[in-house]
Structures are given as C-alpha cells and as structure tokens.
Amino acid sequence: MGKRSAPTGRTPFGKVPLVRQGKWPLIVTFLVPPVLLYVFFVVSPYLQAFQISTTDWLGYSADANQVGLANFRSLWHDDYVWNALKNNAILLGLVPVLTIVLGLFFASMLALGGRKGRAGVTGVRGGALYRTVYFFPQVLSVVIIALLWKEVYHPNQGLLSGAVRAVGLPAPTWLGDPATAFWCVLAVMVWSNVGFYVVLFGAAMSAVPKEIYEAVLLDGASRFTTLRRVTLPLLWDTIQVAWVYLAIFALDGFILVQLMTNGGPNFSTDVIGVRMYDTAFGSETKFGYASAIGVVMFFLTLTVAVLSLRVGRRERIEYS
C-alpha cells in the first residue's frame, strides 16, 4: 500500500554511502567533459544570442552596430509578432489540456478499462494492439506527419474532405481558410503527441500497486471515480512533467506550422518560431531582430515551465 511521507530527501543514494576513495577522479571524468561540452555548445550560443539581439546584425557580414534595446522596442510594436504570440497562447491553453486528457483517457482504458466478465483489474481487449497503434505518430518524423496531414487536408482529394462529403456536408478548404487552418494544425499537434503520453501514463500506471485498484473496485467505484480519485493523484508527477513538455511544445510548434501552412493563410497560423525563422532565413536577413525574438521566446518558455512546475507542486507519494 502507498504511504504518505514528507519530502525528506530520503533517496537510495542517501542510504548507500558513496565510495569515498576515488570520488574526485570519478566526478572529473564523468562530469567535467559533459559540462564543458554543454557550456560550449549550448550556453555560449545563448549568451551570444543575447548579445546579437542588441545589434542590427544582418547576418552576411561580420559588421554589426550596437543598437541597445531598439530591437525589443520594435518588437513591442510589431503586429505580426503579437499575432504570432496570440496563436502561441491559444496553443498553450489547448494543446496540453487536450493531449493530457486524451492521453489519460486512453491510458486508463488500456490499463484498467476492461471490467466485464473477469475478476481483477485488466485493460480493454486488444490493448497491446491499441498501444502500438497509438505510438505510430511518435515513430514518424515530424516532417512526414506534416506532409501526411497536408494530403489528408487536401480540399478536393483529401481523406477528410471525402469523409465530410460522404455524409452530405460541404467540406471546408481546411488549411486554405483562416477560419479553419489554425484548428487543423492544432488537431495535428494533439494527434502527433497523444501516443507518446499514452505510453508514458501507461508506464506510470503500471507502477501503481494493483491492490489499490482492486480495493477501489471492491468498494464499487465507477471508472470515472477511479480515474479522478486514484489514478490522477497517483500520476500527478508524470502529468506535471507532461504538462511542462507540452507547454514547451506549444510555444514552439515550428516544424509543423512551417511545413503545413508556413503561417498562412493571412498569418492565421503564424507562431513565434516561424516569425523568427522568417525574419532571419526567410523573407529577410535581420539576424539581430530575429535574435531578439529568440530572447523573448527563451524567457516566455522559461516562465511557462517554471510556473507550471510551481503551480503543480504537491506532496509526494511513495510506495514502500
């Protein structure tokens, strides 16, 4: 059975003392090279980007003038950037919720959904097959997903238009209409992520002792109550991590958007990542300005991630 305990930092490492002799060689060998690589390839580009964001660098010569915070001032008045941020905000509000709800639903159906005719806690029939199928999008590269869905959304020959017409409804032009394009891209984002979280939540559920569910079952709880009262609290850590990942994904969304719509029609699917790419490599070569967008993105992502870790903090549950 599970028991609650305060977060005391009682870890397996805490119980077993480290080998005292040779501690430093171990640390030096295993930690210093990765840290150096990380500083060189990750941290230093960051710092450079911060520096570049205060210049008017145009990217194809070594000359750049310091312009202070001018790039950030123009950013503040850039309608296209605000439009992209608004879209990111909608993604941030919807993609994590939809993905996690669907992921939890599928995972709990696979782990505990089956109840008819058998004693004990089992998943629905054919669970292994479903689990494999759900994971398919994760196996495909994002590029392939984007191209695949572009064809599904083909207004005349696409799978979706065909299905809608088959039931006698007029099919919209999906990616061609500002009213639908954004939601089409959002649907693909959810679709391509759900599978991974089904597996993640499924793995977390299998770590929950079966006796809990058996007890709940004996008490006559419905499936929904089981999910809400037992599964959710026990999976909270995992859900929180999923939330952070999905929030970061929602603030990015670059590859899917760029390949499916490139921000169009009429900027209705534009996201901040596409704006930045377009400013540096697309229709302009304003690397200084693009770096400023990048810096803004960095702080936004950081804020969202820290907030979602903070807000979701709860007591830890350990099984012993």
């Binding site: 930045m276 790419y277 490599f281 693009a290 990048g294």
Partner: peptide, 13 residues
C-alpha cells in the same frame, strides 16, 4: 534544450 532550437545564432558574428 528546446529554446536552443530557437536561438538560432549558434555561430555568431
């Protein structure tokens, strides 16, 4: 790691 994809100016001025 993710914003790293964002900050594109790995090789700078």
């Amino acid at each position: 790691a993710t914003p790293a994809a964002g900050l594109l100016t790995g090789c700078a001025t």
